[in-house]
Nucleic acid binder design. Structure first.
Lengths: 214, 214
DNA sequence: AAGTGCATCTAGACACTGTCTAGTTTAATG
DNA sequence: CATTAAACTAGACAGTGTCTAGATGCACTT
């Protein structure tokens, strides 16, 4: 889609000017096209029109580059969820949860490579600062949403923990299975969006007993 | 745990005798210890006490080795599920589903590396024969279980598809999230087995409306 | 305006990887 | 026993990440 020519360093110049971003963009297209393992510092450098040692100054390691790319993914997913909420404008807890769940899976389906990187511990140093934060925020947001459902009387307070685990597990598993190709092959006739919507709507119904609203 | 010394070729001999298996065992310990990306044909060859070109004759590619290792994982998981059924001896559809779900997640938690490989498309050639089979069998078995629940009157026939997707997604997501470390960090106080049992029991209750049996 | 500090980037080296190829050993088969 | 085919070796090659020493030029201070 987006060409990579504009990422290259202007000819004759020694300093790139926007190398950090150019490397991330090159990583993005590589991940999207050929998967996370197709990323190499040298290839990424080549796309940016820069020597193979240049990335080290901005990301230290290859793991540094991948961590930055993963963090970018978390930011994007959070933004996508925010947009989903803006569109659906849910007005109670269960509807909010359904909206969030759909946006989560939709993001993963639309950006399978980056979503994959976001949950791959082996690609970056898990001891690094900033690794924990992203997933932590997601968990907090999710459990607050569940708590809101409980506060509104849709579920028992003692279900909070279990429901949080089930909800995240379901959306994450749906995303991962779809992207792995193991479910997709079974559901040729169904489009991804329909499957996503059906699973999320039904799970929320099961947990919070809403009347189905066709 | 298991030493790797016994994998090495007997000294003075030219033929290994059991190289294919030795390479798979070396792969297993490497995956378990350092993750899937730590596997290299040369390291695996070194452990087996054999030259770096030897694996090619048994697995053709590195992707061939990883595919074989993934298939082995599927066999093991199926066996583990069978053992779970033997222990719990469930006598209706929902109980069977709960048993299967728990065994699925338990296997993934006990063998995070191999489970990971089983769902990584990038590690082997997805066009290869035998790639589809494993996931296909899992799907068929799962949907047959759901169908049994329906036949026994625990759910509506039109829910079959959605429930199958939700059930597999939940267990798979729980396994993947736990192994990614993103949930684990939140649940220090809970042991993995308890979380696994609670989530599966509750999901089955939600879908098939059994009375909770404390 | 001149000079200097320092982040940015280059280029070569090193050890490692997967795969290819030609050749060596040995088990199995006739 | 002779021959065929499978198992394995050893070297080469292009590619990788990371480490160095050095070149470049932007952004300051004075």
């Amino acid at each position: 889609m987006t060409g990579t020519e504009d990422l290259a360093k202007p000819k004759g110049r020694y300093h790139h000017g926007d190398l950090r971003n150019a490397l991330l963009r090159a990583t993005e297209t590589l991940v999207a096209d050929k998967g996370a393992d197709a990323v190499s510092l040298r290839e990424v450098s080549r796309v940016a029109g820069v020597s193979h040692g240049a990335p080290a100054h901005h990301f230290n390691n290859k793991t540094g580059l991948m961590l930055a790319f993963a963090q970018e993914g978390w930011s994007r997913m959070i933004a996508a969820i925010g947009e989903g909420i803006g569109t659906d404008s849910p007005d109670n807890g269960p509807e909010l949860l359904e909206t969030v769940g759909k946006a989560y899976v939709a993001f993963a389906m639309a950006n399978p490579g980056q979503f994959d990187v976001m949950f791959r511990r082996d690609l970056y140093d898990t001891q690094d600062d900033g690794y924990v934060g992203a997933g932590e925020n997601a968990w907090v947001f999710l459990s607050e949403t569940i708590q809101r459902c409980i506060d509104e009387g849709f579920a028992d307070p003692e279900d909070a923990e279990t429901y949080t685990v089930i909800a995240w597990s379901m959306v994450h598993g749906l995303a991962a299975l779809w992207n792995s190709g193991r479910v997709k092959s079974r559901f040729d006739r169904l489009d991804a969006a329909r499957l996503n919507a059906a699973a999320n709507a039904r799970l929320v119904d099961l947990m919070f007993g809403r009347n189905s609203k066709h």
